[in-house]
Every structure is written in structure tokens, then in C-alpha cells.
Amino acid sequence: MEEVVQPKVYVRTCIALLVLLAVTWSIGYINLGPFNLIVALAVSIAKAIVIALFFMHIKGSSRILHLAAVAGVIWLLIMISLTLGDYISRGWVPLNH
């Protein structure tokens, strides 16, 4: 038995996404220092979550699909954080004795 969602859910989702796009775009014209990156990433993550929850029907699906959806992201974070850790700490050892 397959279930379908009311059309208005999709329309609202799309409107929310377009509003979030407007937020990113306009923030791009304001100097927030490091917060430009943080806000942009936060909005992107919010958009991705909205798409996954409503368009891709993660909302209401089984736990194993939730797991599959986050696994790739977690592994990407492992890769980025450990590699970035190397680049950040490279300057820590003083080379001039």
C-alpha cells in the first residue's frame, strides 16, 4: 500500500527552498566576515534537509533509510576533518631551531 502526500506539502517545500535561496543570495552582498561562510553553509544544510525530508520522503520512511541518508555525510565529515586537521597543524612545529 503506497501513500501519497498532499500537493500543498510540495508547494510549501518549494516556496521554503526559494526563500532560503533568497537569504543566501542577499547575505552574499553583506560583509559578515567569517559569518558569510557559516550562514551560507547553514542555509545550504537547511535546504538539503528540507529536500531530503519532503521531496525525497525521508520523513516517514524506515530507520535504515535515515541511516543510509546520513552515512555518506558522516563519512565525508571524517575525511574532511582528519585531512583538514593535518593542514591546520602543519605550521605548529617551529622549523627554525
Binding site: 582528519l82 586537521g85 593535518d86 593542514y87 597543524s89 602543519r90 605548529w92 612545529v93
Partner: peptide, 11 residues
């Protein structure tokens, strides 16, 4: 390699 010693310790 030129990997930092600190990263090396973690790994």
C-alpha cells in the same frame, strides 16, 4: 610525507 607530526600522532 609532509603530513604534520600532530596528525601523524592521531593516526
Amino acid at each position: 610525507s609532509s603530513q604534520s607530526v600532530y596528525a601523524g600522532m592521531i593516526f
